[in-house]
Design a protein around this nucleic acid. Sequence first.
DNA 1: CATGAAACCCCTCGGCC
DNA 2: GGCCGAGGGGTTTCATG
Lengths: 151, 151
Amino acid sequence: MSPKELDELDYKILSELMKDARKSVREIAKAVNSSPATVHSRLQKLIKKGVIRGFIPLVDSSKVGYPVTAIIMVSAKGEMLRKLEEELRSIKNVIAIYDITGDYDLMIIAKFRDMEGLDVFVKDLLAREEVVKTLTHIAFNVVKEDLRLPL
Amino acid sequence: MSPKELDELDYKILSELMKDARKSVREIAKAVNSSPATVHSRLQKLIKKGVIRGFIPLVDSSKVGYPVTAIIMVSAKGEMLRKLEEELRSIKNVIAIYDITGDYDLMIIAKFRDMEGLDVFVKDLLAREEVVKTLTHIAFNVVKEDLRLPL
DNA sequence: CATGAAACCCCTCGGCC
DNA sequence: GGCCGAGGGGTTTCATG
């Protein structure tokens, strides 16, 4: 947690990557007024520091066989929450998990090939001892889904 | 909406990109037993079809100045919902918007530099005529946030 | 820590199957 | 539709300021 502190060049490089994460090091260098070698080494550092956790394509999930998006609120007995989270984290249908304030402890966003997949997922959750109750919302329309942030 | 239907090669290429969206066309070709030229043309088609909407870095939001994540449920009068959505979509702090079933109409996930940013956002929402009520959950821990899907 | 240069590697396109 | 080859670029390392 010590060698952090991003400088302006780091932020500029991140901004360019947010426009297009496949942009070449050379192009980025041109856009940020630096050299390819410098951009390359900054990029490696950003990855090593964990600021950048990877590069992914933004895929339209309904076009690749996952038309069902659900938001599942979970109320759980505290002691087992960490273990539940670890298990949920490794389930590939789950795209987001948040610990939240309010009537529920956990919010899960997950995508499924069909309603049956969702049904099985929720029933499996409810079958667990540490899960007290769940509340499922179906997302019948994904208006936006894009992790980019303004830097 | 007609020339869709992805074949196995398309799915393999998408899978390689999910592992690392900066992977070179040549490396992808090697991994999927095809040629760089073929992978290149498939990739262009996937982008043109809208299956791939872009390439982004997965950034740790708390490390780039956005430590506050909130989930905001919104209940709104139906006629103005589309306009509200369009406006929300262009707000860069908003990373996801879903039309949902249940007691609320909309679920928004947004990130902020501090609590004040969240406060302003929610108050602006409530000031709108079409917004009936909101319910905000703070995510005090982001357990997972990764849009990749198993293909 | 940033840079330029050089060696190596890759992208992309037109022509062909 | 897929593949090959070539030319123009791109990436990465290293020695130097």
